[in-house]
């Protein structure tokens, strides 16, 4: 197992080199540089531009800039934001809890709904339930996410008034930043109604963000279960005279979960890298929104550093998926 993890980790190095090269060059290919964007419509004189460029190190040849950037990264320094002058890592750490909170709630929603829906659809194949699940999940998968968000907002926030429109908590509460997770902080603050407000603010964004993963998980679970249910060992299990639920949960699901875990892992990785549309629509201060804004500001260090961190998260999640895979599937655990 350790050998397996080490081998996987060694593959990460070229990935990192690729990511730094790609973000470094791509962001510089976008017309306009940070200085021009900061100056805005007033414009900036050529002399001042040159001065600022020299200050920020943009007058150096590209390969030298890249080299300086990478050597910084290797020392754990992702640089400072050109706009706020804050270290990229600190900005990221401030915003990341909001993204984690939303991503986890969305993932929990997606798994809690998607997995059982997929299992029941497979067991009751061809019934009305099966067709409804498949139709809903296809709709959910193909729906534009911002439209879905606005639709839910219109129904539940505007018309019915059940949920708040946006933000993480009602403005009447002032919650001290302890962990960065609003749910925990609101709970710790002990203010009456704060926790409830934080929960209410999470409901719609979680549903919106969890819709696509839910659809993917439901469809994957269904097809995987269908395949497993026709296996010979399911017949053996039933021939033992064990209860049908035991056949489905113990014998079928464990085998069916193997591909589903991969899908869940990949989806969680995507969720953690920030939900650009959902965060924007719900004014959720997470890293998706942060990255988008930094691109429009041509904030080179933030874009480079942010994407590098996001990539790291996805790589780590993938590694965790591979390890879980080995735990669930003995055939992988035992092969060297």
């Amino acid at each position: 197992m350790i050998q397996f993890i080490l081998r996987r980790l060694s593959l990460v190095i070229p990935t990192f080199i690729g990511i730094t090269l790609l973000t470094f060059t791509l962001i510089r290919l976008i017309p306009g540089d940070p200085i021009e964007v900061m100056a805005g419509e007033r414009g900036v004189s050529a002399a001042r531009h040159a001065e600022l460029s020299a200050q920020l190190g943009f007058d150096q040849p590209l390969y030298l800039q890249y080299f300086r950037y990478v050597s910084g990264v290797l020392q754990g320094d992702l640089g400072n934001s050109l706009v706020t002058k804050e270290p990229v890592m600190r900005e990221f750490l401030t915003l990341f809890p909001a993204t984690i909170e939303l991503a986890l709630c969305a993932a929990i929603f997606a798994i809690l709904v998607g997995l059982p829906a997929g299992i029941i659809a497979a067991v009751k194949r061809g019934t009305l339930f099966d067709h409804s699940v498949m139709t809903f999940s296809l709709t959910g998968y193909s729906m534009p996410i911002f439209w879905w968000a606005l639709l839910l907002m219109l129904i539940f926030s505007v018309n019915l008034g059940w949920t708040p429109v946006s933000g993480r908590i009602d403005v009447v509460y002032w919650i001290d930043d302890v962990t960065g997770f609003m749910l925990i902080d609101a709970f710790l603050s002990g203010e009456e109604g704060a926790f409830g407000s934080a929960v209410a603010h999470l409901i719609l964004p979680s549903i919106v963000l969890g819709t696509i993963p839910m659809a993917v998980i439901a469809r994957m679970t269904r097809s995987s279960m269908l395949e497993v249910l026709s296996e010979d060992y399911i017949r053996t299990a039933r021939a033992k005279g064990i209860a049908p639920w035991r056949v489905i949960i113990i014998h079928a699901l464990r085998n069916a979960l193997i591909p589903v875990i991969t899908v869940i892992g990949l989806q969680v990785g995507i969720l953690l890298s920030g939900a650009i549309l959902t965060e924007t629509v719900f004014a959720w201060p997470g890293i998706g929104k942060w990255l988008i804004e930094s691109i429009s500001r041509r904030d080179y260090p933030v874009v480079q550093g942010g994407i590098l961190i996001v990539a790291t998260i996805i790589i780590v999640v993938n590694l965790l998926v591979d390890i879980t895979y080995g735990i669930v599937n003995p055939r992988i655990r035992h092969s060297r």
Partner: peptide
């Protein structure tokens, strides 16, 4: 209660008849 205890069955392909997990 009868299936698997009083009446039991074995199948054609043993390699796929046991649960791999």
């Amino acid at each position: 209660k009868i299936t698997g205890s009083d009446i039991a069955m074995i199948f054609q392909d043993p390699m796929t008849s046991l649960n791999p997990c």
